[in-house]
Amino acid sequence: MNCYAATGSLLPVCAQCVSKADVVVGSIGLAAFLFKGPCEDALVAMGLLPEPHPLAVGIRTVNFLRDLDLDPVQILGDDVVEAVDTVLAFPRQVVFRRTFRQAIALMLPLSIRSQRVFATK
């Protein structure tokens, strides 16, 4: 019995491969989820990424909920919203931060390191 024969224009390999897409995408997503935190921490430690604000997630979520006309107090609680609003009312001072180029230069042994390290602080 050859009841699984496909038509000439549709090769079986097409669906066989597409059927793996969810597993491949899911695996990549899972790996990204697991390694995202440690990678970000490493990049921050290397000076390649700015240090995130301690309440970055809270700020983002509160703003997002407000954009959707939802009350963040009901969803996240008044303590959280109060903390976020306080931060938004008194934003942190802009501090000097290395640029990407400076951070790369810092890691490469090209010139007088002692000069460069202190000059950037």
Partner: peptide, 16 residues
């Protein structure tokens, strides 16, 4: 907006 997002606000705002 009213049932799905409030249950997972951090993930939806991250995707946002």
């Amino acid at each position: 907006r009213t049932r799905v997002v409030p249950a997972d606000p951090h993930v939806w705002s991250w995707l946002g």
